[in-house]
Design a protein around this nucleic acid. Structure first.
Length: 449
RNA sequence: CGGGGCAUAGCGCAGUCUGGUAGCGCACCUGCUUUGGGAGCAGGGGGUCGCAAGUUCGAAUCUUGCUGCCCCGACCA
């Protein structure tokens, strides 16, 4: 993509409404614009990141055996009256009525809808277990939206729902999602720590929050140091096999958010040197709630003995749009965003230091073609602007690699490769720079595999 | 919902107290000079001063009502 033809409105100054780093940087780097409190438009660069995150979530859901579908944003109120949550949910639910004065709502979550779909379609235990998911916009009319996309009112969420015949089977589904979450966040360059959590309005008695550690995180978290060092399972993990050992490894040691934190247990269970107190951001939340909805909504199947069995359910959420902010919170510096390669909107930024200089232009054009041909996505700054402004812009938007091409280098047959995360620069030939980038790209996809 | 603050050009702000032709920096356009870490000079474009009513010869400025946004708290993927 040539920057001269792209839509990338950058801001030099911080908009005054943005308090935290991710919100500031998302506005400044031209990722989002606010439409209303807690409601955002995604500009081209931000949308590319959102898509990348969505893709990783989708791949890991599919790998775990979950099936993608798509439910609507608008739901009829009757379903929520069936479960009893129409009254419980309160003002957080955006209630609307259509032209026939029929009560509708903009879905804050989808337990009712998916339960109705499953109930109407499945009658036999032979069709269990199943995990269904979708990635869809939700709306929760937060009392006070803040922190940009981290606590928006409209947000993109992946939510999965599991259906099982027995509690034991349901626990296996829960474990599958648990493992899939570990992999999902790790692939985005995040250290996630599962923590025992409150179940809140979703209900149930088993629940984990997936917290990523970031200095500017919203909640205080406490855990054993070992949990942070744990490596997530590889892509070869057998989701049909016994996942219990993995779950034990990740849940066997102390980890709690401030709501569940117990200072005495923390002190007793964790040696002082291993006690980690940090800030965290919740990026995923999984629940097992048994028959809460299936009971209320009559979701039953016939078991092997011919008897009717109420289905055991769980639900599993990932805040996709929140992750964009969370990743930035975990990965930025004074100059701007530092995208992990797996979610970067482009793999590499190509800077033409002297646009208009024939030799430099030609070198950039040639390199641009080679990079694209090699399968790398490139944002080529071909604008007629000063070098300093281009460097600042490229640092701000945070692509993992920058290739800097100027007249001096062109004359000596070398270009400069800069790694955004470390700031390290190397003068290289075009060929070795290409190799270096391709190698880094291969390593990134190996992590995914 | 309680408390506080803000609303003037795309972004950041001054002007409001004390009413009298709407300003500054950045960004944007044109020209010249510059050219490896957010250049300089000159010229220029862009505003119904959040909305509505009122007071007044005259309102960004005073009064009243409304709306939006931000911060703190309670609430939360």
């Amino acid at each position: 993509m040539r920057l001269s033809r792209y839509f990338l409105p950058l801001l030099r100054d911080d908009p005054k409404e943005a308090e935290i780093a991710s919100h500031r940087l998302m506005l400044r780097a031209g990722l989002i614009r606010q439409a209303s409190a807690g409601i955002y438009s995604w500009l081209p660069l931000g949308f590319r990141v959102l898509r990348k995150i969505e893709d990783i979530v989708r791949e890991e859901q599919d790998r775990a055996g979950a099936l993608e579908l798509l439910m609507p944003t608008i739901q009829p109120a009757e379903l929520w009256q069936e479960s009893g949550r129409y009254e419980v949910y309160g003002k957080e639910m955006l209630r609307i009525s259509d032209r026939h004065e029929r009560a509708m709502l903009y879905g804050p979550t989808n337990e009712e809808l998916i339960t109705a779909i499953f109930r109407d379609a499945v009658k036999s235990y032979k069709d269990l277990p199943r995990i269904l998911y979708h990635i869809q916009w939700k709306f929760r009319d937060e009392i006070r939206p803040r922190f940009g996309v981290m606590r928006g009112r409209e947000f993109l969420m992946k939510d999965s729902y599991s259906f099982d015949l027995t509690v034991e089977d349901a626990r296996k589904s829960y474990n599958r999602m648990f493992v899939s979450y570990l992999r999902t966040f790790a692939r985005m360059g995040l250290k996630s720590v599962p923590m025992v959590a409150e179940t809140g309005v979703i209900g149930g008695n088993l629940s984990h929050e997936f917290i990523i550690l970031a200095d500017t995180g919203e909640s205080e978290v406490y855990c054993h140091r070992d949990l942070i060092q744990l490596e997530p399972p590889g892509a070869d993990i057998d989701y049909q096999g016994d996942l219990a050992p993995v779950i034990e490894a990740f849940t066997g040691k102390y980890a709690a958010t401030s709501e569940k934190h117990d200072a005495e247990s923390f002190a007793r269970e964790v040696p002082a040197k291993d006690r980690v107190t940090a800030r965290g951001i919740e990026v995923g939340h999984i629940f097992f709630f048994g028959t809460k909805y299936s009971e209320a909504m009559g979701c039953k199947v016939q078991g092997p003995g011919g008897d009717l069995v109420t289905v055991q359910m769980g639900s599993y959420g990932i805040g996709v749009s929140r992750l964009v902010g969370a990743i930035i919170e975990a990965s930025h510096d004074d100059a701007g965003i530092i995208w992990p390669q797996s979610v970067a909107p482009f793999d590499v930024g190509l800077i033409n230091v002297k646009a208009g200089d024939a030799a430099t232009d030609a070198a950039c054009e040639s390199l641009y073609g080679k990079l694209e041909t090699a399968g790398l996505s490139v944002l080529y700054d071909d604008r007629d602007d000063r070098a300093g402004a281009k460097f600042a812009a490229m640092d701000l938007i945070g692509l993992p690699w920058q290739i800097i091409v100027g007249p001096k280098g062109v004359a000596s047959g070398e270009i400069e490769l800069k790694e955004r995360a470390t700031g390290a620069r190397h003068s290289l030939t075009v060929e070795s720079a290409l190799n270096r980038l391709l190698q880094s790209s291969r390593e990134a996809s190996k992590e995914a595999a």
